[in-house]
Design a protein around this nucleic acid. Sequence first.
DNA 1: GAATTCATGTAACTTGTTACATGATTTA
DNA 2: TAAATCATGTAACAAGTTACATGAATTC
Lengths: 191, 191
Amino acid sequence: MSLSYAILGLLSYRPMTGYSLKEVFDNSISHFWHAHLSQIYRELSRMEENGLVASEVQQREGRPDRKVYQITSRGEENLQSWLVSFPQKLVMSYNDEFLLRLYFGGRIGRDEILFQMTKYRKETESRLNHFQSLYRVIEDFSKKAGGPEDRLYWELTLDLGVQLLRANLEWIERALEKIKSGDDPLKKSPG
Amino acid sequence: MSLSYAILGLLSYRPMTGYSLKEVFDNSISHFWHAHLSQIYRELSRMEENGLVASEVQQREGRPDRKVYQITSRGEENLQSWLVSFPQKLVMSYNDEFLLRLYFGGRIGRDEILFQMTKYRKETESRLNHFQSLYRVIEDFSKKAGGPEDRLYWELTLDLGVQLLRANLEWIERALEKIKSGDDPLKKSPG
DNA sequence: GAATTCATGTAACTTGTTACATGATTTA
DNA sequence: TAAATCATGTAACAAGTTACATGAATTC
């Protein structure tokens, strides 16, 4: 289960609560990994049972208690051995609901498709904007934790996220034109 | 659950067994949707309970029985209303184990990263080759089922799959160079 | 003779998703 | 004063994964 390695890796930079782990997931690795808060809490409990992490409850006046998790030496070993083992099977389970609809586009009207595609473009654009703002987050974070080596790899993964979104947007433009030109009665039956 | 819509959509072209549905998943929509055979069987049972599909057992001499599923009118309605409803939340759960390792690349040696990246490139290349062979599958299939409209959309989804893989490969080349040049002691501290 | 394909599923388990429950502090 | 943020989780269910079980026909 890769989620536990994602958690171990992030805890290897600094101890964190489940809540703050979720923030890092959303801000720093959302371009290639997503997890729900409830998943993170469940996984942390399991990992503590297995001795991969250890928790300490911090009581603070007024504000609610925080349960701060840190990686154990066993957790470090676990992480390390995972990092150097290239997966036998590359899991690439890319299930895309929008593409599933588009595949069956022949079953609905072109206007509906154009409408959905335009919405999809808007969403993709805002995701691209979000990703581009993450370079700043990496810069800030590399000053606090990790070294210049870490920063190289953080930026590389983000580069891919940005490039894939750009390729996606280029495809959207071409697809819109293809669909529109198919809609043009002059081009449908020439002569 | 989008799996049931994928099944309904495919059954709307022609009746199929669970086994042949799996083949279509792997050959025709694998670039944006993946499902295990056991998932398909489970989902078909559930859908039959809900009246979205109906099955008929065909007995054949010598060979094992086949359970052929077809879409019901209720299933058609179900599919149609899903197709015209743009999702409130675009599910983009893209979890990539390779990128997760790369993100933590600072924790392992550069040689290991280069080794894994090279393997990743090889896998990505073979996926691209597979995708490119699917245009032929679409061509063949559009002669048997569906019309020219369907073919446009089938090709569009495949176009995206191909373009994303190409963008991925371009990124790999650049990433390899960046990692290698960071490894070069001459570039590390000039002078 | 061994492996692959066709064809059906069940069982056990892990992961992902959504809703619920609680409650203080801060910001709009 | 309403909403958002911080902070913890549980419960219930849906979806994804892997292993097991069966057995004929075909291909290597």
